[in-house]
Structure formats: C-alpha cells, structure tokens
Simulated assay, not measured.
Amino acid sequence: MLPSLHRMLASRSMALNSGLCRGLCALESTVTQKRSQASSAERKKFYESVTIAQGEGGYEINLDHRKLKTPQGKIFTVPSEPLAIAVATEWDSQKETIKFFTMHLTTLCNTALDNPTRRNKDQFIRSSLKYLDTDTICYRVEDPPGLVELQTNEWDPVLKWAENRYDVVIGSSTSIMGPVIPDKTKEVFHRHLASYNSWSLIGIEFMVTQLKSLILAMGLVDRFLTVQKAVLLSRLEEEYQIQRWGNVEWAHDYDLQELQARTAAGTLFVHLCSSSSTIKHKLLQD
C-alpha cells in the first residue's frame, strides 16, 4: 500500500523583516515554543495499515478497519480520489507517533467537513480578498537602495503578471497606507474566486494567510509560480536581511521549511479539490 500511495501522489504533484538584529534570545524563544507546541500535538500511532474506500458521499480513509472521522465525529469523506490518496499518504507516513502538526491536508479536509467557524462561500471569498489591500508585494520601501532594487526586480514581474492575467489595476506604494486598490479590481477577483468550490476556497484562504498575499497565492493556483518561489517572494525582506547580517540556521531555516510545507499543502489541496478526475483502481493493486 505504501509504495502505491507515494507513486500515485507523486504523479499528481506539481512543479511546485528580520535579521540578527531581532536578537538570538527572541529567536530561540520562538523556536522553543514551536517545538513545545509540536510535541503536544502528537499521539501514539494506533494503526498498521491505511486504505481508501469509495463511499456514498465520496472517498473515505480507513485506518486498519476503522473509518477515519473528523474532530466533530463525521465520517472523513473527501470529494476526489487523488485527494484521498494524498491524505492517506499523510497517515501512512506517520511513524511511532502521529504528528498532527505535519498533516496539513488532513487539517484542511477537517476544516472543510466540519466548518467550525460556520462560514459560507462568500465569507471565505471575502476573507481572502481582504488581503489584497495589504498584499505583501504591494508594500514597498524607500530605503535601503539594495532592498528597493530587490523588490522592484522580484515583485514587479509578478504584479505585472497579475494585472495582465486578470485585466486589472493593482499597483504598489511606499506609503504606510499601501496602494489604493480600485473597486473594479476587487470585483474582478471576487468573481474569479467565486468560480471555485468551497473546498478550494478554504485552500486558497490557507495559502493567502501563509504568504500574506492574494497575488502570490493566485500565482500558485495558476501555476505561474512554484511553491519555493512564492515563499521566497513572501519573505523577500527577511531574506535580504539574512544576506546582510547572516543566518541563524536553526531558526530561519525552521521557519522557511514550515512555511514551504504549509504553502505546498495548500496549493496541492486547491488543485486536488478543483479536479474531478479519478485514478484507475488497478493502480491500487501495486
């Protein structure tokens, strides 16, 4: 089962401000806190095998012979077989303990199934759309010159792509208030987001909150950017400071890897929720 899950998931995968001045103590405290939270979000593994079954409402995940359930006790059922395979891979990859903080796809599915905040589709859209007013790549600095040049060279091409792709005006600003986004632009993005189903919108919202950028998130959804590039662009000022002051490997690298993992999961989730394709069952016999 395990080799098949990894091969099938791989076949559906896509090419996907701070330096030392913040102080070593603050960085160490942050990492220690994260590690402590991670340790508390674990549970001893209680199953041996992970399988997928097609039910009335979609695809279910079985841990041994027990159906996986959501935190609210609902049967864990996803709309597409590729998504089921991806989730099953998360569970199959767990070792002696289940590290829930690494299972981003499972968490996103639980959110979609339980909808703990009781939001509707329009609320999910507005949640992502509000980031357009404070989008990371729209906020520019006036100094130092090196960072100004870096932002221009790296962010402008993405901004130009988005304006051409959606036929809108976005712009950038060095004002603390940010650029003034035209109402027409917001309307266009609202209509575009409305074309996605609720599951995909949950994934898009997750990506937007990770990157603090609706534009970067849509660049990922449209496959204009890879995950690595989008994450780098979202951390541009921090990476610039690292180049100037040096890297605290156990802190900066930890944050980078975490952000890449969450962003990759959100991107994959959106793509798999937007697809209605299935995988031939004969592949499950490998």
Rank of each mutant, 00 (worst) to 15 (best):
K74I: 10
S275Q: 05
G73R: 05
Y131D: 04
R262I: 13
V168D: 07
E81K: 10
I202C: 09
G55F: 03
G19N: 02
T89Q: 10
F46Q: 02
A112N: 08
T107L: 03
E56F: 10
I204C: 13
T136Q: 14
K45M: 11
G266E: 00
K130S: 14
N153H: 13
K186D: 09
D156T: 14
E149D: 09
P182Y: 12
L105R: 10
D156H: 07
S276M: 00
Y139H: 15
G246H: 08
Q37F: 07
I242V: 14
R235Q: 03
T97S: 15
M207E: 03
E187D: 11
L284D: 14
T209M: 14
V50A: 12
V231I: 05
P79I: 05
A84V: 04
I170W: 08
V148H: 06
Y166D: 11
L20R: 11
F76M: 04
R140Q: 15
K121W: 00
D156W: 05
S277W: 02
I52G: 04
G19I: 01
R119E: 14
G171F: 06
R235A: 01
T111K: 06
T77S: 15
S213L: 12
S213P: 12
L256F: 11
S13A: 15
V31H: 03
A26Y: 04
M103K: 02
D135W: 12
K99P: 00
I181G: 10
L24F: 15
S36A: 15
E81N: 02
M177I: 01
M8Q: 12
L113G: 06
S18P: 00
V188L: 04
S49K: 14
D183H: 06
D255N: 11
D135T: 11
L214I: 08
H192E: 09
M8K: 11
L201E: 09
T111H: 01
E237A: 04
A217P: 00
E90W: 13
S80I: 02
